[in-house]
Simulated scan of single mutants.
Amino acid sequence: MEKITIDALLSFGDYQWRVLDIQNNSALIITECIIEQRPYHDVYKDITWAECALRKYLNGKFYDSFNKTDQSRIITVLNKNLDNQWYGSPGGADTKDNIFLLSLEEVCTYFGDSRSNLYNRGKNQRYWFERKDKNNDKRIARLQGKEGSWWWWLRSPGRVNVKAVYIFGTDGNIGIQGNNVLKGNISDGRCTGGVRPALWLKL
Rank of each mutant, 00 (worst) to 15 (best):
I4A: 06
T5N: 09
T5K: 13
I6E: 15
D7G: 00
F12G: 02
G13I: 06
Q16T: 14
Q16K: 10
W17N: 03
R18I: 14
V19H: 04
V19C: 06
N25L: 11
N25D: 15
N25Y: 12
A27L: 02
L28S: 01
I29S: 03
E32G: 04
E36M: 10
K45H: 09
C52V: 11
R55N: 14
Y57L: 06
Y57V: 06
G60Q: 09
K61Q: 09
S65V: 02
N67S: 08
D70P: 00
Q71N: 05
S72V: 02
R73S: 01
T76R: 05
N79K: 15
K80H: 03
K80Q: 07
D83E: 11
N84D: 07
Y87L: 02
P90D: 12
P90K: 13
A93H: 06
L102D: 00
L102S: 05
E106I: 00
Y119M: 00
Y119N: 08
R121W: 01
K134Y: 03
N136E: 11
I140Y: 04
A141P: 06
G145S: 05
W150I: 00
L154K: 03
R155K: 14
S156K: 05
P157N: 14
N173S: 12
I174Y: 04
Q177C: 08
G178V: 11
N179K: 11
N180V: 08
G184W: 07
N185Q: 06
I186F: 07
S187H: 09
R196A: 14
